[in-house]
Amino acid sequence: MNVALAVEPDKKSRKASKETRQQQLIEATIDSLAKRGYSDTTLANVADGAKLSRGIVNFHFESKEKLLVATLQYMADEYASHWNAALAKAQPSAAGRMWALVNADFDRKICTKRKLAAWCAFWGEAKSRPTYQALCGATDLNYQNAFVDLCAELKAEGGYDYAPEPMALGICSMLEGLWFRLMMNDGLTREKALVAAIEYVAAVFPRHLSTNGLL
């Protein structure tokens, strides 16, 4: 009995240690992508950034490509969890959910210079790396479909003269464009980007939203 009790915590400890190490390496990869870009990120500087040995990196991820795929998967999952949580906490109306989604894109949890730069590094490689496109494809589709559904609901409620799918594409493209501007570091701040996004959706849905919130 005592032996069994001693073994179980040890297994949990090893699992926790593995997850902790992997997370350290993923965070160090994000740092390296933001600082050096995709091509100049190496296993060596990731190991240095995480303050771990090169052997630890190889043990957990085996290659740079596997580490980068794991990092992209982590970022995609984090982003999806973030906007889904925003929807879950939003006011139940279509306008409330639209407001929550737009605000979520500029939350400081995910909209940071560091993470935006890492996203930019991955997007620059996506065209030549189908694995990256496949990783984010389902998440991107779910995100856009959430906007399509909201646009359809708001059209039905407000009698707006637009087609839901093109309107949703326009909103998603506007949000992505603001992220790209933030990546360019041309003086645009996260706060100003959010104001611009709110101005846009308030103009599109004037019977539901204003720059101050829900009507």
Rank of each mutant, 00 (worst) to 15 (best):
V3K: 08
V3L: 06
V7N: 13
P9V: 09
S13N: 09
R14H: 14
K15G: 11
K15N: 09
A16E: 13
K18W: 07
E19Q: 15
E19Y: 10
Q22T: 03
Q24H: 09
L25Y: 10
I26Y: 05
E27Q: 14
A28D: 01
A28P: 05
I30A: 02
D31L: 09
S32V: 00
A34N: 10
A34H: 04
R36L: 05
G37T: 02
S39E: 11
A44L: 11
A44E: 14
A47W: 05
L52W: 13
S53K: 04
R54I: 05
V57K: 00
V57P: 01
S63N: 08
K64D: 06
K66L: 12
L67H: 02
V69Y: 09
V69G: 00
L72R: 09
M75R: 05
A76F: 03
D77H: 05
Y79P: 01
A80M: 04
S81W: 01
H82L: 10
A90C: 11
S93T: 14
A95D: 05
W99Q: 11
L101W: 12
F106P: 09
F106N: 03
F106E: 00
R108G: 12
I110V: 11
K115D: 05
A117I: 04
A117H: 13
C120F: 10
W123H: 03
E125D: 04
P130A: 10
C136L: 14
A138H: 03
T139D: 14
Q144M: 14
A146L: 05
V148M: 13
L150K: 01
C151M: 15
E157P: 06
Y160K: 06
A163W: 08
P164K: 03
I171N: 04
I171S: 04
C172E: 13
E176H: 14
G177Q: 04
W179E: 09
W179M: 09
R190P: 02
V201A: 05
A202Q: 13
A202N: 08
A202W: 11
A203I: 01
F205D: 01
S210P: 00
T211P: 05
T211D: 04
